[in-house]
Amino acid sequence: MNDPSAASPGQLPTIPPLVAIAMRPLPLLPLQFALGGVLQRIHRRNPAMFDRLGDHARARFGIKPIDLPFAFVVEARPPRLSVVRELPKDLDARISASLANLLALLEGRVDGDALMFSRELVVEGDVEAVLALRNAIDDAQLDLATEVSSLFGPLGAPARRALEAARGRMIGSSGQGESSR
């Protein structure tokens, strides 16, 4: 029995710092508009997902990709998303990780506890709310390429193929499980 691996979940790539710097001047409103649409769509298609949040359905989560010059504030009920340069102080919880790890978590391709063990996921604030969110998302079996490509109307099919290719480059075809082989 070999031990080929030892690859950790954190081997997913990060955004190069120069690219992140180049993104700094970009306006945030178009991104907020687009991602807000994705969240609304996820909410419509997965109503049970938000039931799993229970008492935390109205919590405000700050999501900080550590390799991007902006962050997200997300609320589940009603579904709201804002893109901000800095996270506000009055959040219920903050979650930080690389963009690739956050996207892989959203699709259930990596295990949140494993990312905590390897120190690639940082949680602050209401841990119970974060756990409820993680479990709700993991059960929802989200496919971000499908969700995002829906914004492209008649160009949805080619957009989906492009997004799937981009996802493959960023987080691999099956995330943590395969990366550990």
Binding site: S5, F117, S118
Partner: peptide, 20 residues
């Protein structure tokens, strides 16, 4: 692999372990 008596080519589970 145990049943067939062969050597298993399987993934390491280290990334999933507590404390690695």
């Amino acid at each position: 692999a145990l049943e067939s008596g062969s050597e298993a080519d399987i993934a390491s589970l280290k990334p999933f372990t507590e404390g690695q």
